[in-house]
């Protein structure tokens, strides 16, 4: 839904334009258009791959999984729903597929499995050298990393999907296969935990950040 406020309107048009584009590509795919599949793969590779990197640093495994996901979609195109929330659908399927593969690796490798196959979720914030960031930003991200590190995997994953993939509460619930209310609860708990772990002196800075991270469209 686009609201009447001008500022939001532009943003809204931009977002829905992209969504519509992907959705019409999805319709083409269902009709058997191979180029549509390539187009979707191109526009979703990075979001999916970056999400996958939170579970494993094995680039090859991630590439395999993305390919398998799209080939399976192609093979089952006659049975797929025409109206889907594409992003959360792809994230859900990709997550399932990748975790199954990682689990299988854990099962088949009896000894010394590379530590790159975590069975949990992690991400580290960092200032890219290419970017000109202030000392303040560096300090802030260092603190934030320490805080995030204290959260359990599930809470981390919700924060990631919310912030870096800007998924809605319902979409996150879909991807993680839990109830939307649970997503809110998880974020609530994470917020409380982060607050109690933050020294009063830096809390002021974080407050803005945390509010941005957690509150928007979530509760």
């Amino acid at each position: 839904m686009c609201s009447i406020l001008e500022a939001e309107l532009l943003q809204c048009i931009y977002v829905s334009f992209n969504l519509e584009n992907d959705n019409s590509t999805w319709q083409d795919l269902l009709k058997g258009d191979k180029n549509a599949l390539a187009k979707l793969m191109q526009s979703f590779f990075r979001p999916l791959a970056n999400y996958g990197l939170r579970f494993t640093s094995d680039k090859e495994l991630i590439k395999d999984s993305v390919q398998e996901l799209f080939i399976v979609l192609w093979e089952r195109r006659n049975q797929l729903a025409t109206s889907v929330n594409l992003k959360s659908y792809l994230f859900t399927s990709f997550r399932r597929l990748l975790l199954r593969k990682i689990k299988k690796l854990h099962k088949t490798s009896t000894i010394n499995l590379d530590p790159i196959y975590m069975e949990s979720f992690s991400f580290v914030l960092g200032i890219d050298n290419k970017m000109i960031a202030s000392e303040q930003a560096k300090i802030l991200s260092k603190h934030f990393n320490e805080l995030i590190a204290k959260l359990p995997a599930r809470q981390k994953e919700v924060v990631y999907l919310k912030f870096f993939e800007t998924l809605s509460r319902e979409e996150i619930a879909n991807v993680l296969e839990i109830a939307p209310q649970t997503v809110s609860n998880i974020l609530q708990i994470a917020l409380v935990k982060l607050k109690s772990a933050t020294p009063e002196s830096v809390w002021k800075l974080y407050k803005i950040l945390l509010v941005l991270l957690f509150v928007k469209n979530i509760f």
Binding site: A38, M41, Q42, F45, R46, A49, N50, L53, K59, K63, V66, Q67, F123, V124, L125, G126, I127, D128, M131, A133, S134, Q136, A137, K138, L140, S141, F144, F163, F164, L209, L213
Partner: peptide
């Protein structure tokens, strides 16, 4: 800037090759 993840791991050529 302070909540940024360095995701620059996959080279564009790799993505094109996969597609």
């Amino acid at each position: 800037l302070s909540v940024y993840i360095d995701n620059d791991i996959f080279h564009e050529d790799e993505v094109q090759e996969l597609v």
